[in-house]
């Protein structure tokens, strides 16, 4: 229950961090809030030679509104984003989904970029990001690139980030005109990892539903606006496509049923919230 030994590096800037990653590559792990990483290090599920602490880099801590998206610096805490006064009007989905992330105590240190980089299949932020069609900004010594959420997370805690790259920011698209949003989650207790979480975006003539906690990464499906019977059928098909597996928290059968029921409820709620 104590971590393995490692060397600790505290770069002062993004430039120093990427230089450090270029040098140590796969031997280095970035830490920001440490809420997921240190727990895994305590269990010795993760061992690293170099721990690179970016929590105090000011250039990674900001919330900025651009033309069609909100850009959040990677080391911005979840609590900072949740307390941002514009959040509910510019991103109703994040305002509804983020209270499900851990607890008051963990959101105070847990970061937006950390959650995205960690890519737990039950996490709320990766689910919101992929449902909204957002993207991740990566930086290495060689340059910057933007990767869509769809391409970023490739599996269970696996992303397309190269070892010499760091997540510097996350871009969440601003609410679309006339769209309604909903986020629902089932967990053993509020704040526990989701057994199933759903995020819905409903616009005139289209429905987008993201599901987390069932497959090895969040999945999204888009349909034309569906009537009652067609909606149930579409959700059933989505549930069987994701499959899910049995674990100590829930059976695959229960998870598929949650997609059908929570998915339906989220879509109806999002429909009500359109304006």
């Amino acid at each position: 229950m104590k971590p393995h030994s490692f060397e600790y590096l505290r770069p002062a800037s993004i430039e120093e961090t990427v230089a450090c990653l270029a040098r140590h590559s796969e031997d280095a792990r970035i830490i920001a809030g440490g809420l997921s990483l240190v727990a895994m290090m305590n269990f010795r599920l993760v061992e690293t030679k170099f721990l690179v602490d970016v929590a105090n880099i000011k250039a990674l801590n900001y919330i900025r509104v651009d033309a069609d998206h909100i850009e959040v610096g990677a080391a911005t805490t979840q609590a900072q984003l949740l307390a941002w006064p514009e959040l509910a009007s510019l991103s109703p989905l994040l305002a509804k989904g983020m209270p499900f992330i851990g607890h008051f105590q963990t959101r105070a240190r847990g970061t937006v970029g950390g959650s995205i980089a960690h890519s737990d299949p039950s996490s709320e932020l990766p689910l919101c990001l992929i449902t909204l069609g957002g993207s991740v900004m990566l930086r290495s010594k060689a340059g910057s690139r933007e990767v869509t959420a769809e391409d970023f997370q490739v599996g269970l805690m696996q992303t397309s980030r190269r070892p010499d790259e760091m997540v510097v920011a996350v871009r969440f698209p601003i609410r679309k005109k006339g769209a309604g949003y909903s986020f629902l989650e089932m967990a053993m207790r509020k704040g526990d990892l989701a057994i199933c979480a759903v995020a819905a975006e409903v616009r005139d003539g289209s429905i987008r539903l993201g599901v987390g906690g069932v497959a090895d990464k969040p999945a999204v499906r888009e349909w034309k606006d569906l009537g009652d019977a067609a909606l149930d059928e579409a959700l059933n098909e989505f549930a069987w496509d994701l499959g899910g597996s049995d674990d100590v928290h829930a059976t695959a059968t229960f998870r598929r049923q949650l997609i059908r029921r929570l998915g339906r409820r989220a879509i109806l709620e999002a429909r009500e919230c359109r304006n």
Partner: peptide
């Protein structure tokens, strides 16, 4: 749980050097 710069933090998920 302690307070770090006024905000709650899990001391078990924080390294002393941080």
């Amino acid at each position: 749980t302690i307070r770090m710069d006024g905000l709650p933090a899990r001391a078990c998920l924080t390294f002393a050097i941080q």
